[in-house]
């Protein structure tokens, strides 16, 4: 425990800015993955254990597109669009067959695809780790805000994730499609009876979830190494986020992800040997005081 370092940091604006942005970056990427997970659970009532694979595919799609076109924007677009299509196919062909099945069956199908997707990546891109490299436009000196260090790429990353959060939140609460999705989540048989194609909605939600995870992977590709199995590590943290925020709640995923990000960034100063533990401890505290998570009652 190093509380002095933590107190010293909280007293200095430079440290505060650096660590807060560092927490936001970790949190925002986590949010993009977790929100898809929570959305799919909220509407389809399926715990998508294979969600990390979309994050992985997003990163690999982005890397390959970037290598071919040299365009960062195209890389992001392909990362997101590619995983959306993949999500749609995966849902229609495989997941839609196990909606009625028990949880164990769903879990087994998902886990099988975790292994299959990892092997697909291994076959297509090879077993060794890869790096996409930072686009030249972002190979610049970091900004200094109130003495704190903030890399410009991370500002973009936070911005994109924030826009995604706002569009998603507004889309679900304000638009007709959002209403239909919420209706399907609430009472699928009634929605279906009203003449709405719930299969289409399920496929669409799964594609959206996949796309968000893919976007997270694409955004992370310039700074994280790409390797088969990379989805698994983010998946576990995403589960923590959804459990803290409440399964099925978008606002919960956002708050949960940001809290985890901040716990990591400030925890590594104050509790360097217990940063991981801190995350789980926080989860336990939330679960004991609010078993449904912070925003568990809301339905997406």
């Amino acid at each position: 425990m190093d509380l002095n370092a933590l107190i010293a940091c909280l007293a200095s604006s430079a440290c505060l800015v650096t660590q807060t942005t560092s927490g936001l970056i970790i949190g925002m990427l986590l949010f993009l993955v977790a929100v898809g997970l929570t959305l799919i659970f909220g509407v389809l009532k399926v715990v998508n254990f294979s969600h990390g694979a979309f994050y992985m595919f997003g990163a690999y799609f982005a890397m390959t597109t970037y290598q071919i076109t040299g365009s960062f924007a195209a890389a992001m677009l392909c990362g997101a669009a590619g995983t959306a299509i993949l999500g749609l196919i995966f849902e229609r062909v495989f997941m839609s067959r196990v909606y009625g099945a028990d949880v164990l069956m769903q879990l087994l199908v998902c886990y099988a695809f975790v292994l299959i997707f990892d092997d697909v990546v291994r076959m297509v891109w090879g077993p060794e780790f890869k790096s996409m490299g930072m686009p030249t436009a972002f190979q610049v000196m970091p900004l200094f805000i109130a003495g704190g260090v903030v890399p410009p790429y991370y500002l973009l990353l936070i911005g994109v994730a924030l826009v995604a959060a706002i569009v998603l939140g507004a889309g679900l609460s304000r638009t007709r499609i959002g209403k239909v999705v919420r209706a399907a989540a609430h009472n699928p048989s009634m929605t279906s009876a009203l003449g709405i194609n719930t299969g289409l909605i399920y496929g669409g939600v799964f594609a959206l979830g996949g796309m968000l995870a893919g976007l997270a992977g694409a955004l992370a590709a310039p700074v994280r190494s790409l390797t088969p199995g990379m989805g698994f590590s983010v998946l576990i943290e995403s589960f923590i986020v959804t459990v803290i925020g409440g399964m099925g709640s978008i606002l919960g995923a956002l708050i949960g992800a940001l809290l985890i990000g901040l716990i990591r960034s400030f925890g590594s100063l104050g509790f360097p040997l217990f940063t991981e533990g801190l995350m789980y401890l926080f989860m336990v505290i939330v679960l004991v005081s609010r078993p449904t998570g912070l925003f568990g009652k809301e339905v997406a």
Partner: peptide, 21 residues
Amino acid sequence: SESWPKLFQPDYTEVVTKVLQ
């Protein structure tokens, strides 16, 4: 300063900024 990130941790931002501090 000592940092001990987990093996195969995907993100090192918090330990990078810790070293900078």
